[in-house]
């Protein structure tokens, strides 16, 4: 997996238990982490921006809710806004949509993962964390089809097992890692620093 030094983006999908899990994944990443990170966390349509504030407190990276037509930049984390799908265009900018929910979710992980798979093809890492439904499985399969890489949180370390388990069951995970190892592993993959 040393090929991931030419990674251009990381996408992360999670649902219940995600806020805590995201903090743990982002924590080890340095402020100058060279790859943009795009996140779908299932969230109530009425949610305010508590998630952005929470992650800002727990990460060195710059965190924002995505605006339509944002161009992902290194060192930044883009979070899908409540009640919008977040898509990646082939020209590698973000767009938002209020098309119907998918897997009962808006934002939906499949929408982000499937569009990101076409935009970044082999230069993409997808991560599936804790969650109690199977949104993201189709998206993970698409990323695999485009020869990107998928990391699944090990279900034993997930507050809700179904989301990572579903990806694992479809043989769409390249590697299964405990929650506290995922951030360090990203540093290894992308910066080439040693991994214990």
């Amino acid at each position: 997996m040393s090929t991931m030094k030419d990674c251009n983006a990381i996408v992360i999908g999670t649902s219940s238990g995600g806020l805590n899990a995201l903090s743990k994944v982002l924590k080890p990443l340095a402020r100058d982490f060279p790859v943009p990170i795009l996140i779908v966390q299932h969230i109530s349509p009425d949610a305010n921006d508590f998630m952005v504030h929470h992650l800002r407190k727990n990460s060195n990276l710059q965190i924002k809710e995505a605006d339509d037509k944002d161009i992902p930049e290194k060192g930044w984390v883009y979070i899908a806004p409540p009640n919008y799908h977040m898509l990646v265009e082939e020209e590698r900018f973000l767009s938002l949509a209020v098309t119907p929910p998918e897997n009962f979710s808006r934002p939906s992980i499949d929408v982000l993962f499937e569009t990101a798979a076409d935009a970044y093809t082999t230069h993409l890492i997808g991560i599936i964390l804790t969650g109690a439904n199977n949104d993201g499985t189709k998206g993970a399969i698409r990323i695999k089809d485009r020869k990107g890489m998928i990391i699944a949180q090990s279900p034993e370390t997930a507050e809700a097992t179904m989301m990572p388990q579903s990806v694992i069951d479809k043989n769409a995970a390249d590697i299964i890692l405990p929650l506290d190892q995922i951030g360090k592993y990203l540093n290894t993959l992308i910066l080439g620093t040693s991994y214990e």
Binding site: L87, V88, E89, E90, E91, S95, A97, T99, V111, E114, T115, D118, A119
Partner: peptide, 8 residues
């Protein structure tokens, strides 16, 4: 936008 059209 292409990603939207493509999905539909």
């Amino acid at each position: 936008t292409n990603a939207h059209i493509k999905r539909r």
